[in-house]
Design a protein around this nucleic acid. Structure first.
Lengths: 241, 241
DNA sequence: AAAGTAAAGGTCGTGAAGACCAAAACTAGA
DNA sequence: TCTAGTTTTGGTCTTCACGACCTTTACTTT
């Protein structure tokens, strides 16, 4: 690497966080309304400059805390870097994108550096109903792609629900993110067969307003480094090229 | 995002490429010997500064071409960003890591900005027999992790072999990367059942020096966006936490 | 010609996944 | 209190993917 250490192209480095949660049966993303140019007034995913003394992971954790008040997310993973020269009209900015999964945050607190913040359904973002600043639409798309495979390959699903949950709630996570319908009985079998992933508490949940047999309450057990209990794709795979 | 566009922390941004190939039945990584401090004389993965006018993908493609002469790799994917403040003793450097897969490159040409270059078995790197500069050991580890799941989840295996190959060669890719033994008959069944992934050419390969029935030659068909034909994990999954 | 080797093809048993049905346990309303 | 509706939970059955293992085919070398 033959270069002069003192003369290198300088870039701004930011960390952006796609914060996902389940709310009202749908997958939601936390957006902030930009308070200044460029893209003043439009929605964006929260983020900010990396500080010279912190790591990327620390920067992501800090941004998440500033925006939501949550200091420890259920999950916070880096999933991509974006550095197109024109992605920020002001200057050359390289951003490292993180995916955060939170159990439903009731009241979203607007962070220190955002004029406004809101949870919006990801479907509204993906189909273009809500326009995002910069290349944030692409970043959100990539985040969704990531969470979809993460759901299959790790035990990430429990990160979306509370500390105690019913199997129906857990099933709703898969159904919302994958956009499929899962058989309740078969789902239960797969999940409890995966010994240790969910642990029955012995307590039961109150049935909803429609009645029905009260569901058993579970809590999250161990996570998986590779291989979750539920799989999509009946065995027909999609073609890329 | 309340910041002053003119006063932001400046970083150096580099792109590093982990170049993998199969050679002599083992997974190999391309390393360059550093010609200057720091870590002068030790091995590193090739990389260099991102230029202000190019995208990250373009920078990776350029680095790959500079180092190997190959202008179009079978595969070139971004898989991680590294930005620890102390990762480079001279200054604050954020690097974006790419994974490149090449069919066996016979003669490795030392690039313009490297004193020396060589293919070394990844096992020698992973077990510490070969020490790498900076945090490049971690980067190579992550690259291997990535290629292992990519192998299962996409049709990436054909990127390691030539334009025409036998099923035994293809099977060797899986066996080397996953460190497993696969039954030749079952492997064949899985692969050809995945209609369109490999296409028989009708021609046959010359048997090796040990003799044996000549194998049919195949060429790569379409790739997969998700879901390859071969799966590891007999059904026992590893625990993370 | 005989022995050796690797590819290719077959068979069989196990087990996972999905479709579908039935029972259990609650709510709401008559 | 009784009945209808709803949801969870449990059961059965079929299908099919996967791995273990064996046989046949087509070449090599001696």
């Amino acid at each position: 690497m033959g270069y002069d250490p003192s003369s290198f192209p300088a870039f701004a480095v930011t960390v952006d966080v796609v914060i996902l949660t389940m709310s009202e049966g749908a997958l939601q993303v936390l957006l902030v309304r930009r308070g200044e140019a460029p893209f003043e007034g439009s929605w964006a995913i929260p983020g900010g400059f990396k500080r010279p003394a912190e790591t990327l992971d620390e920067a992501a954790k800090r941004e998440l805390a500033e925006e939501t008040g949550v200091d420890a997310a259920s999950l916070l993973t880096q999933f991509g870097a974006y550095g197109d020269p024109e992605r920020d009209p002001r200057m050359n900015v390289v951003t490292i994108a993180y995916l955060a999964v939170l159990r439903d945050v009731g009241a979203v607190v607007a962070g220190t550096d955002a004029a406004d913040a809101a949870l919006v359904p990801v479907s509204d973002v993906l189909n273009g109903d809500i326009e995002l600043a910069f290349d944030h639409l692409q970043i959100v798309r990539d985040a969704i792609d990531r969470v979809r495979v993460e759901l299959e390959v790790t035990g990430i699903a429990t990160a979306f629900v509370g500390t105690t949950f019913t199997l129906a709630e857990l099933r709703a996570v898969y159904e919302a993110i994958w956009g499929v319908q899962l058989d309740a009985a078969n789902f239960r079998r797969s999940v409890v067969a995966d010994d240790g992933w969910v642990i029955p508490t012995g307590r039961r949940a109150r049935p909803g307003p429609a009645g029905g047999r009260p569901a058993e309450l579970y809590r999250a057990g161990r996570a998986w480094s590779h291989g979750g209990p539920i799989h999509r794709f009946p065995r027909t795979w999609e073609v890329k090229a």
